[in-house]
């Protein structure tokens, strides 16, 4: 396959960026999207040109480090798939592919296609945990959790924190990400003690980070590589409002 890439290049957060066109030649349909970029980068290095910076690590679709807006879609055209698991067989020979970083005020560009998602960490730090120290906990089987609830909590827990939901949203809202964590703990018995403080603290931090509001377009759910459901957002709203009324 031969492709034309229009790639966003930006030296750092202070310098304005621009699209640069590259050729990706002799690409095998069995390559992953990132392996295709590896090929382009290796050529750039050979000609002493600065390679394209992008975030990636596990390349198994679980670490959440890879990102990329591909032809305007976070993680590209395939549903329930991270960029690292997207293969070139999803594209046509001769196609032009536009590659951009996540675009959100709360995710400043680090370089080229890599952005700073530390806002997500700070939201988790605000309350995304059960306050339990190491040791002194009950036997694991003393906490009974019905399978249906455990499974539902698990569905929320599968979020990999990649930020695709924010990138997909026209308001750059982080509601899907935050609500997945809030939901996981709100559903489990371990999370009950702090459920309302948690919801409040995490939502407040989310707002402080400059993420937008949710206007129920469901773009986040459509683009989430782990298929996290918007029902989590409804749950989080309930938790947040309850926090106002029921002082936990």
């Amino acid at each position: 396959m031969n492709l034309t890439l229009k790639v966003w290049r930006q030296k750092n957060s202070q310098t304005p960026g621009k699209f640069v066109t590259y050729k990706a030649e002799e690409i095998s349909p069995d390559m992953s999207f990132l392996e295709m970029l590896d090929v382009v980068n290796e050529k750039l290095v050979k000609t002493q040109e600065d390679p394209i910076q992008f975030d990636h690590d596990c390349r198994e679709g679980i670490c959440g480090m890879c990102s990329l807006m591909i032809n305007g879609e976070p993680h590209g055209p395939k549903r329930a798939t991270t960029t690292c698991q997207l293969h070139m067989r999803s594209f046509k020979d001769g196609e032009t592919i536009v590659i951009e970083p996540w675009r959100a005020a709360a995710f400043p560009v680090v370089k080229d296609l890599a952005v700073d998602r530390s806002a997500f960490d700070r939201i988790q730090q605000a309350g995304g945990y059960v306050s339990v120290g190491t040791g002194g906990v009950p036997d694991a089987n003393e906490i009974l959790i019905p399978k249906t609830i455990a499974d539902e909590a698990f569905n929320s827990a599968t979020c990999i924190g990649c930020g695709a939901c924010v990138a997909a949203c026209k308001n750059a809202s982080a509601m899907l990400f935050v609500s997945a964590k809030v939901s996981q703990y709100a559903m489990l018995p371990q999370g009950q003690t702090e459920r309302y403080e948690r919801a409040k603290a995490m939502v407040n931090q989310m707002d402080d980070e400059g993420f937008g509001s949710c206007t129920n377009t469901y773009a986040c759910e459509a683009q989430c590589p782990k298929e996290i459901k918007v029902t989590n957002i409804a749950r989080m709203n309930r938790e947040y409002f309850n926090a106002e009324f029921i002082k936990g």
Binding site: Y129, V130, V132, T134, G135, V137, P138, D139, A140, N141, I143, L144, I145, P146, K147, A150, A153, F154, A157, Q184, Y185, L188, Q190, G191
Partner: peptide
């Protein structure tokens, strides 16, 4: 054995059976 207790207390969603046990 302590590790499993610790992780469950943190809210790690291990697989469970219908009776709620791990």
């Amino acid at each position: 054995v302590n590790i499993i207790d610790q992780c469950v207390a943190q809210g790690v969603p291990f697989a469970r059976e219908y009776g709620g046990l791990l």
